[in-house]
């Protein structure tokens, strides 16, 4: 037991010293790298052209409001897709988990589904469903590219999400299932109250990665018409003959995704701390 008024323990003093040393090292190396970038890059012969093309402040100012507005569409598509993806992904995962031989066709369907939708590029699914299904003769509003584009995203991402859920379910030891069944609980209650809560918690980090990928793939909906941020940036690029609008779009994306990832990490760390 160390007295608080006796000052730091030997170990605390040692750790403090180490920490100070590593902070100094980090500060020095970071400033060297940053200085090299800031000083050396502008000295290159092509810098003026590159700056004009990618970092043109006038174009930033001109394009920012419309790009931000277009970004709201990305956010909306993302927001309504996520719950659908989660629900379908979970359903597929559960279909793949049924043990009863009577339901073998359901299981087979689950396997086929995940294999197909994970094997095909998202762009193709977006085109095929976004143009193909409405092309069969659906009338407005049922041929909307928003509707079918969302369907394409949901179908594709549900396949990935289902696989992750399934790996989570399989990672829960059989003894947990047995313990619940031995109490007389039904298989569905066992899944709902015992297996899934543990499985879902376990796969949160993997699912977060999927969501970040989805964020970016939302832009693929622009291929079938909707003018979201990257499409709007493309229009500006074409009209202004500059890549700066893409840089602005990327910056807007990062402003949202970086805090979101940090928050997710933080929540996860907190959850882990709380449990131990």
């Amino acid at each position: 037991m160390s007295d608080s008024n006796k000052g730091p323990t030997r170990r605390q003093a040692h750790e403090r010293k180490l920490k100070r040393r590593s902070m100094i090292l980090a500060a020095i190396s970071t400033s060297v790298v940053v200085a090299a970038l800031v000083i050396l890059i502008p000295l290159t012969p092509g810098w003026e052209r590159v700056k004009q093309s990618f970092f043109n402040w006038d174009i930033v100012v001109r394009t920012f409001p419309k790009l931000l507005n277009a970004f709201l569409l990305d956010v909306a598509i993302f927001a309504w897709s996520v719950p659908l993806i989660a629900a379908l992904g979970l359903a597929i995962a559960l279909a793949r988990d049924v043990r009863d031989p009577v339901f073998y066709p359901l299981r087979l369907f689950g396997i086929l589904y995940t294999d197909i939708f994970r094997g095909v590029p998202v762009v193709l699914v977006v085109y095929l469903i976004g143009f193909g299904i409405p092309g069969l003769g659906l009338q407005r509003p049922f041929n909307s590219p928003y509707l079918w584009g969302t369907v394409a995203l949901v179908l594709t991402y549900a396949a990935y999400v289902a696989e992750i859920f399934r790996s989570g379910i399989e990672s829960i030891h059989a003894s947990q299932r047995n313990a619940a069944l031995s109490l007389g609980m039904s298989p569905s209650d066992t899944m709902r109250f015992v297996i899934l809560p543990q499985a879902i918690r376990r796969v949160v980090p993997a699912q977060m990665n999927i969501l970040i990928a989805l964020q970016k793939d939302v832009a693929l909906l622009s291929f079938i018409g909707p003018v979201e941020i990257f499409r709007q940036a493309g229009v500006f690029k074409s009209l202004l003959a500059s890549f700066t609008p893409y840089v602005v779009a990327a910056a807007i994306f990062l402003v949202v995704t970086i805090p979101a990832t940090r928050l997710a990490d933080h929540m996860l760390a907190k959850q882990n701390r709380a449990r131990s």
Binding site: S175, N178, A179, A180, L183, G184, M185, V194
Partner: peptide, 18 residues
């Protein structure tokens, strides 16, 4: 299911729901 409700079992490894 209803039969298991009448028979309790306890395992070597506890198997509590964590």
């Amino acid at each position: 299911q209803p039969i298991r409700q009448r028979i309790g079992i306890v395992f070597q490894s506890f198997n509590l729901f964590p």
